[in-house]
């Protein structure tokens, strides 16, 4: 899976000074499966916008985005839905958890679509991030850092060619961040998937193929 951006820029950013951006100022930019990308920028530079465009939930941009050679504007809702089930996974900055479902149910909701992993595997993933004791708690009463870990696990219980992670470590300490990052890395390697990670650049992450400044 390859994303190709042709002078793509979200409309709200047109009024901003984007000088020096390796994404918005690039004539053409490729994001390839199997590689990991970190997109670093302070707030308000369009990190979330970039991921939203790639995930098909934002269409207010100028220029073109091609996915495996096809303009993503031509994708139908059905195709987007299929992509989100099988080929694209995302960890939203806003997490998008259901507060009145338990941690486990939030993860199962996603896993039920494809039945990709077993309940044991969910347990293992929760264990890896120290979330096992919270599996049966309502997601709404967890701390934001804990919720981020739930969202990470949820993003990992489906097949994908690309994982989009939007500031997913912002409320975790260094130790938990590294644990979570390793888990993500491992899961991506297993799937030979690409990783696009946006970050405010608080923690230095190892083994990143490409760093892009936004």
């Amino acid at each position: 899976m390859i994303f190709r951006f042709e002078q793509m820029i979200p409309l709200p950013l047109l009024e901003q000074d984007t000088a020096g951006s390796e994404v918005w100022e690039a004539d053409s930019l490729l994001l390839e499966q199997g590689k990991s990308y970190v997109i670093e920028a302070p707030s308000g530079r369009g990190k979330t916008s970039l991921l939203s465009v790639m995930y098909g939930i934002r269409t207010d941009y100028q220029g073109d985005v091609f996915l495996d050679g096809r303009n993503i504007k031509s994708f139908t809702m059905r195709e987007w839905s299929a992509l989100r089930k099988k080929r694209l996974s995302i960890i939203f900055q806003g997490l998008e958890l259901f507060d009145d479902l338990s941690t486990l149910e939030n993860i199962q909701l996603k896993n039920n679509i494809t039945g990709h992993v077993s309940n044991e595997r969910i347990g293992e993933l929760a264990h890896a991030l120290g979330m096992e004791p919270y599996l049966h708690r309502l997601a709404g009463i967890l701390s934001f850092g804990q919720q981020q870990r739930v969202a990470i696990i949820r993003a990992l219980v489906q097949p994908f060619d690309f994982l989009l992670a939007d500031e997913c470590f912002s409320h975790m300490d260094k130790e938990n961040t590294l644990k979570a990052y390793q888990l993500i890395q491992h899961e991506c390697e297993m799937r030979k998937a690409g990783l696009v990670l946006t970050s405010l650049n608080e923690t230095e992450l190892p083994d990143i193929d490409v760093k892009l400044n936004l």
């Binding site: 995930y55 939930i57 809702m77 839905s81 089930k85 998008e96 259901f98 909701l109 996603k110």
Partner: peptide
């Protein structure tokens, strides 16, 4: 809100 969220998670309408 929930419907939008479910759609983001990959559910078709």
């Amino acid at each position: 809100e929930k419907i939008r969220r479910l759609n983001k998670l990959g559910f078709h309408f």
